[in-house]
């Protein structure tokens, strides 16, 4: 293989890789570290890659790198981040075309969903993110998480259940 082949096949999925790492680790700097490590691992093993789904392959490596990293190995995965008020981790998401009021409201919405998602156990969170944000099929999620499809379905179910319950609890 040539260096160019790896870049052409794998790098188009860098945003997906980063987004998954970010949702798993909930930290921009940990996500950076995880993606760097994962992409270099992927480059090392690229000669052995025979599949037709490079995005799924990369996401699987990202996911396992995140699980093995200190970011998820510290045992803090169930603790919600304090996101009320001074959260500075999201501003790059706001659309610069929004007027200030819309942008503010959008940031508040993003903070809210980030907080709610952060409260989910990591295995539920990753399943939900892969389904709703990456829009992957049950089968693809099963491959990435190395989990039977039945488990994917029940994790997805529990994740949505918890999220819906959290929405209702807030509106009450």
């Amino acid at each position: 293989m040539t260096g160019g082949a790896f870049e052409a096949v794998v790098l188009p999925h860098l945003d997906a890789a980063y987004s998954l790492a970010r949702w798993l680790t909930r930290s921009p700097s940990d996500a950076d570290d995880v993606v760097q490590e994962a992409v270099l691992r992927a480059a090392t093993y690229f000669t052995g890659f025979r599949g037709t789904n490079p995005r799924g392959w990369l996401l699987q490596i990202v996911r396992n790198t995140a699980y093995a990293s200190h970011a998820l190995a510290r045992g803090v995965v169930l603790v919600a981040l304090p996101t009320e008020g001074g959260d500075t981790t999201i501003p790059e998401i706001a659309d610069p075309g929004d007027d200030p009021e819309t942008a503010l409201s959008r940031r508040q919405d993003q903070r809210r969903v980030t907080r709610l998602l952060s409260q989910l156990p990591v295995d539920l969170r990753e399943t939900l993110v892969l389904r709703e944000l990456e829009e992957l099929s049950y089968k693809e999620i099963a491959q990435i998480t190395e989990t039977p499809i039945g488990t994917v379905m029940s994790r997805l179910w529990r994740a949505r259940q918890m999220l819906a319950a959290a929405i209702k609890a807030e509106e009450r």
Binding site: L11, L14, D15, A17, Y18, S19, R22, W23, P28, A31, D32, V35, Q36, V39, I90, E92, I93, D109, Q110, R112, V113, T114, L116, L117, L128, V129, E132, L133, E134, A159, R160, L163, A164, I167
Partner: peptide, 24 residues
Amino acid sequence: EAARHLMRDDAPRYRAPDSLRRAL
């Protein structure tokens, strides 16, 4: 539907920062 609505409307799908692309 409520969970999907919340995820797809509000949950950011993060983009890899340029600094990460350069480092890679």
